[in-house]
């Protein structure tokens, strides 16, 4: 597991649901076809209402034009991030677009679980309401050992909540690797 994650912030509000993360009409592409799955990156976060997309200004596109990768790799969210459906296409599309970490106040449980068990990115929690502190485009650094998030643009550092028990799955990579490590399923 990487000890440092660096990237630009993309800031969203409360209750970002899975229909905003990936609108249902796009759930038809194959996730196993390397070319086709790029569509998920292209349409990631396209359901977010304009005024909420890329706070505080809003109306900031997450990916541009036909690009499937975003220049933003750390998502900052408010409460109840990822609520709604169980579609794993939601964390998957964010990973395909290049997201490496999400830092939110709290998560909806299926989304959180999918992020961890599928190993798409690390879902951190922070007690500070970062949505009001961090601006889209700020240069961020997450230090996994110190459990901190630094905003290099604003020269501020915040404590992250401990990842708790899921750290074992995150360190293993995903639920399958974790189960192999612990002998639950045979090693491949």
């Amino acid at each position: 597991m990487k000890k440092i994650i660096e990237g630009l912030a993309y800031v969203l509000g409360n209750d970002v649901d899975t229909d905003q993360i990936i609108p249902a009409e796009h759930l038809v592409y194959s996730l196993s076809d390397p070319e086709e799955k790029k569509n998920y990156g292209k349409f990631a976060l396209t359901g977010v209402p304009g005024e909420q997309a890329g706070l505080p200004e809003g109306n900031v596109s997450f990916t541009e034009g036909d690009n499937f990768e975003s220049k933003y790799s750390i998502i900052i969210g408010g409460k109840n991030f990822g609520c709604g459906s169980s579609r794993e296409h939601a964390p998957a599309c964010m990973e395909i677009a290049g997201v490496r970490a999400v830092v939110a106040q709290s998560y909806a449980r299926i989304f959180y679980r999918n992020s961890v068990d599928g190993g798409f990115f690390i879902p951190f929690e922070c007690e500070t309401r970062l949505v009001e502190e961090i601006k889209t485009g700020d240069d961020l650094k997450i230090d996994l050992e110190a459990n901190t998030l630094s905003n290099k643009t604003q020269n501020k550092t915040y404590d992250l909540k401990s990842l708790g028990e899921v750290i074992d799955i995150i360190e293993a990579g995903n639920i399958f690797e974790y189960a192999r490590k612990t002998g639950m399923i045979a090693s491949s």
Partner: peptide, 16 residues
């Protein structure tokens, strides 16, 4: 309860 594809694939293989 609801789960994602990864957890469902895990169940398909292990029943747990």
């Amino acid at each position: 309860t609801g789960i994602g594809n990864t957890d469902a694939a895990f169940i398909l293989g292990t029943g747990k």
